[in-house]
Simulated assay, not measured.
Amino acid sequence: MMSVCPCGLPQPYQVCCEPIHLNHAKATKPEQLMRARYAAHVLGLVDFVVDTYHPSCDAESQREGIAQSIDSHWIKLDVLKAESGSHADEGFVTFSAYFEEDSTEYCMTEKSRFVRESGLWYYIDGTFPEQEPEKLEIDPRLSEPVSSLKIGRNDPCLCGSGKKYKKCCG
């Protein structure tokens, strides 16, 4: 019997992530490796997860912690975005992974960075988008020469405080 792959794609495991679990080189895109790594968490494949960290991460020395992370009740995966990096051998995948602990469901969202070396994709690191600082919107008037600025007393202040110019820097 063919079961649906734990990575969330509507394909049998035997044609989706299992070939990658058996041969790392079958992951030809960062998203494929990320999905296979998630499926490996669900299936308890510690060796696969350790082996698909970039060699610079020295994942072997962290095997115990990785095994503890894998030993969770993983519920589902949502891939939010897959994008190219700054060169052909870099890619990013943003995803949310859901797991249950003590009858409570949690969600971990990460933007993972993958690099390709010697033809193989590896997970190298990630950031947590909800913790990234918000990008501030730059007032377009700041790119104009000061002499040409016409700032009214009731215009929003250039400093970005959200106050009127007259109540702030005016």
Rank of each mutant, 00 (worst) to 15 (best):
T52W: 01
P12I: 07
G91V: 05
Y106L: 09
E101S: 14
A36I: 04
A67M: 00
E90Q: 11
R37M: 07
A82N: 10
Y53F: 11
Y98M: 08
F128P: 07
R37N: 03
D47T: 04
P10W: 07
D139A: 05
S86C: 10
H73W: 09
S103H: 14
A39K: 03
L80Q: 08
A25M: 14
L43W: 06
C16K: 04
E18C: 08
I138C: 06
D139K: 00
I124Y: 00
G8F: 01
E130N: 15
A40E: 02
P55A: 06
V50M: 01
F114Q: 08
E130S: 15
A27W: 02
D58C: 08
K81L: 14
F128D: 12
Y106E: 06
Y53L: 03
L80V: 11
E110K: 02
C107T: 13
T52S: 07
G126Q: 06
E60L: 12
E117S: 12
E117R: 13
F92E: 01
Q14L: 13
D58N: 15
M108N: 14
D78K: 10
S86T: 14
A97H: 03
P133S: 07
P30T: 05
H73V: 12
D139G: 01
Y106W: 09
L9A: 12
P12M: 10
C17N: 04
S72A: 15
I20P: 00
V50P: 02
H21C: 04
L120W: 05
S72I: 03
E105Y: 01
F95W: 05
A39N: 00
F114H: 09
A40S: 09
R116E: 09
L43P: 04
D89S: 11
P133H: 05
Q62Y: 12
S69R: 13
H41M: 10
Y106N: 08
G119N: 03
P12Q: 12
W121Q: 01
L33A: 03
Y13K: 07
R37S: 02
S69F: 14
S118P: 07
G65Q: 07
D78Y: 08
D125R: 10
A88T: 14
F95V: 03
S56L: 10
C57Y: 10
E31A: 06
S72T: 13
A67H: 04
Y13D: 10
E100R: 14
L136A: 15
V46E: 02
Q68C: 09
K29L: 14
R113H: 12
R116M: 11
V50W: 00
K111Y: 03
G91K: 04
R37A: 02
Y53W: 12
T94N: 02
V49C: 03
S56E: 15
C17E: 04
A27D: 05
R35S: 03
N23Q: 13
G85V: 00
I70T: 06
V93T: 02
Y38M: 07
S61M: 07
A27F: 00
V115R: 09
A59I: 02
K29F: 10
A36D: 03
D125A: 12
D71L: 09
Y106G: 05
I66T: 01
